[in-house]
Simulated assay, not measured.
Amino acid sequence: MKQLMKLTAIAIIAGIVLAGLLNIIQSLTGNHAYILLFNMDYIPLLKQWNNTYGAGMVFHFATCIASVIVLFYLLKPLQRSLTFLPYFLTYTIGGGILYSLTALTELPPALTDTTAWGIWTLGHGVYGIVIGLLMKYWK
């Protein structure tokens, strides 16, 4: 139970950093990559709550928590769960790939918006850095 609480805390901290960074970038540039963190309108079971206040935030943090816990336990048998690189690579590459889900929604940004893709991927790289560092150094 203690391990799950630590993983949850790491996910929440990294999720705050990711959302904060993308929000700042949106404020400075007007680019809408930030919106994708909270958008659920392309997920059949969740789209009914897409316009419910706070639902997108719950979705974002639930995704953060689930992904950190799952990745930790996938890496554990490989004895890589407390190392930096797997988290950084998984979240940077995975984030870049997941950007393609924007094609399933009518909300901005467009799939062809390479600046938004770069911002999204950068944000997820930072997310991976935060998780990787916390996994490695939080004892």
Rank of each mutant, 00 (worst) to 15 (best):
L21Y: 03
Q48N: 11
L22H: 13
F38M: 06
G94M: 01
W49D: 00
T121K: 01
W117F: 11
P108S: 13
L22R: 03
G30N: 02
H32L: 14
I16N: 00
P108F: 07
P109A: 04
T102F: 06
S81Y: 05
L107F: 13
T121A: 07
Y73N: 03
I25E: 03
Y91A: 05
I97T: 06
I69P: 03
T92I: 06
N23V: 00
Y99F: 15
N39Q: 13
H60F: 12
I24E: 08
N31Q: 08
L74D: 00
I24N: 10
K76S: 04
R80C: 11
T90F: 15
S27Q: 15
T29Y: 08
L101I: 05
M135S: 04
G123R: 00
L107P: 02
M57H: 06
Y42D: 07
V17H: 07
Y99T: 10
T112L: 15
D113S: 14
Y34E: 03
T29E: 14
H60T: 06
V126M: 02
L22T: 08
I131L: 11
I97Y: 14
L37I: 08
Y42S: 11
Q26V: 01
A33M: 05
G128H: 07
S67I: 07
I129Q: 03
I131A: 06
F38Y: 13
I129C: 02
A33T: 10
E106A: 02
A33F: 00
L98H: 00
